[in-house]
Amino acid sequence: MPLIPGAEPLSHDGGPIGVLVIHGFTSSPKSMRPWAEHLVEAGFTVEMPRLPGHGTTWQDMSVTRWEDWYAEVDRVLTSLLSRCEQVFVMGLSMGGSLALRLAERRGADIAGIVLVNPAVHTERKEAVLLPVLRHLVKAFPGIRNDIKKPGVDEGAYEKMPLQCFYSLQSAWKDIRADIRSVTVPVVLLRSREDHVVEPSNAAWILANVASTDVTEVVLENSYHVATIDHDAELIFTTSVDFVHRVAGSAAQA
Rank of each mutant, 00 (worst) to 15 (best):
L206T: 10
W66K: 06
T78A: 11
G107E: 07
I4N: 02
G142Q: 09
R144Q: 01
G15S: 09
A232N: 03
S167R: 00
A108P: 08
V187I: 15
D13Y: 07
V197P: 00
H195D: 12
I143Q: 03
L39E: 00
A210P: 06
H135Y: 10
E37M: 10
V46S: 01
G248N: 06
P5I: 10
M48W: 05
W35Y: 14
T183E: 11
G14R: 00
D146R: 02
R83N: 01
P118K: 02
L77A: 09
G6R: 10
A247F: 08
A177S: 11
V21A: 07
V128R: 06
D109M: 14
V76L: 05
A108S: 13
A71N: 12
S222Q: 07
P131N: 14
D178G: 13
L115W: 15
T183N: 10
A251K: 13
E67P: 06
I113Q: 08
A71Y: 10
M1D: 06
D13T: 14
I205N: 03
C84I: 05
R124E: 14
L188Q: 04
H244F: 04
H244N: 04
D146T: 03
V87P: 00
F25M: 08
T122L: 11
G112H: 00
L219V: 06
P150S: 07
L219P: 00
G95I: 03
E85Y: 01
E198K: 09
V186L: 14
S27E: 12
M32S: 06
Y70E: 13
V21M: 08
D68T: 09
L136F: 09
T64P: 02
A103Y: 10
P5G: 05
T57N: 00
T26H: 02
A202Y: 03
H135A: 05
A250H: 04
V120F: 04
C84K: 08
E8A: 11
W204P: 03
L10H: 03
R83E: 02
L130F: 06
K149A: 01
V19N: 01
I205T: 04
M94W: 08
G248R: 08
G142S: 08
S62G: 12
T78G: 14
V243N: 01
G6P: 03
Y223F: 13
H23C: 13
E72D: 12
D109L: 09
V197Q: 00
I175V: 13
V114N: 05
H12I: 02
L102H: 10
L206Q: 00
D194H: 03
D174Q: 15
V63W: 04
